[in-house]
């Protein structure tokens, strides 16, 4: 501590630093650079110069150049991927946070059967999202359990022997799956927070004849605000990066009536890499756009939290 140029510390850190530099920092910077290159060739690394066109095309401000292939995919970013990503995030994150909070409070207030319920709620956490997608696919198939229960035959999932689902139904199943899958981690964090709240605050509130709902809003929520902030920031980030759930559930980019109906930003980036990387400069630009959006939302939440979070 006294010697600030402690080389020993640096030596201990060196393996981590090398790995981070190699696999995180270098790709990060490279992604940023490539996103500004015109006609970038993945194989040769050549380009015809610096440009903002990649961003302009992605954001629908400029036409995709004629001499390149893959117009449909690139256009789908602004048309479908970006709106879908925002929609999924803003639907699933608030719903799952509120649900998790309610479930955590309920779990925390029961004694009997608590472990059983906890196990039930925590199973998604140890389950693979692809497997979850397959199960949901069976449940929500046109002849599946859900349709059986409600006596309907709505098509939620595209597949053999079923009709093409509408955008609304496909999105509905997707959101239900994401909310269900995201719950356990949040419940875990909230229960941890709940157990650290001193019982005396509730006793004091009871003495003062505070109704239950008011106790929840004026004691539980403020005391959990650090956990709520943490969960909300991480789940917004997760939401913006949504991709696996779609792959698992639909086994495609969500072909309903149109090709790219349930496209998301990360799915788009993944597709660009998979298809040989001829338009990889666009994928990089998309990644940077996503990064900026996430950054803005995180800053916004931190700003709001300054007034609303009590440590």
């Amino acid at each position: 501590m006294e010697n600030k140029n402690n080389y020993k510390g640096w030596i201990y850190l060196l393996p981590a630093i090398i790995l981070i530099a190699l696999f995180t920092l270098y790709p990060l910077i490279n992604t940023f650079l490539i996103s500004f290159l015109e006609d970038y060739k993945y194989a040769t690394g050549s380009s015809s110069g610096f440009t903002f066109d990649n961003y302009a095309v992605l954001l629908g401000l400029k036409e995709f150049p004629d001499y390149l292939t893959g117009k449909g995919q690139i256009d789908a970013f602004f048309q479908y991927a970006l709106p879908n990503t925002l929609l999924i995030t803003f639907i699933t994150v608030p719903i799952s946070i509120v649900l998790a909070l309610i479930i955590a409070v309920a779990l925390n207030s029961i004694k009997k059967l608590r472990t059983i319920f906890q196990t039930i709620f925590f199973t998604p956490y140890v389950t693979n999202i692809i497997a979850v997608g397959m199960v949901f696919g069976v449940l929500f198939s046109q002849t599946g359990l859900i349709n059986e229960i409600f006596g309907t035959s709505i098509s939620f999932i595209p597949g053999q022997g079923s009709d093409a689902p509408t955008y609304f139904h496909a999105m509905l199943v997707l959101c239900i799956e994401i909310v269900w899958y995201e719950l356990p981690f949040k419940i875990l964090v909230f229960i941890g927070g709940l157990q650290s709240i001193d019982r005396q605050y509730y006793d004091a509130a009871r003495i003062d004849a505070t109704p239950k709902i008011k106790r929840f809003l004026h004691i539980t929520v403020p005391f959990l605000s650090p956990q709520i902030l943490y969960v909300s920031i991480t789940s917004f980030i997760d939401g913006f990066k949504e991709y696996q759930a779609i792959a698992g559930l639909f086994n495609s980019r969500g072909t309903t009536s149109l090709n790219y109906n349930l496209y998301t930003c990360v799915y788009f980036i993944y597709d660009q890499i998979q298809t040989g990387g001829q338009n990889i400069n666009y994928a990089c630009a998309a990644a940077v756009i996503l990064f900026v959006i996430i950054l803005l939302f995180t800053l916004l939440q931190l700003y709001v939290s300054k007034k609303r979070v009590y440590y």
């Binding site: 005396q200 605050y201 006793d203 009871r206 003495i207 004849a209 505070t210 004026h218 403020p222 009590y310």
Partner: peptide, 21 residues
């Protein structure tokens, strides 16, 4: 009678003041 209806005032050992208010 539940504490809500007893109409009493209680001062706790560590006061239990709501820190966020």
């Amino acid at each position: 009678l539940v504490p809500e209806k007893k109409g009493i005032g209680l001062v706790f050992q560590n006061y239990a003041l709501y820190p966020h208010m």
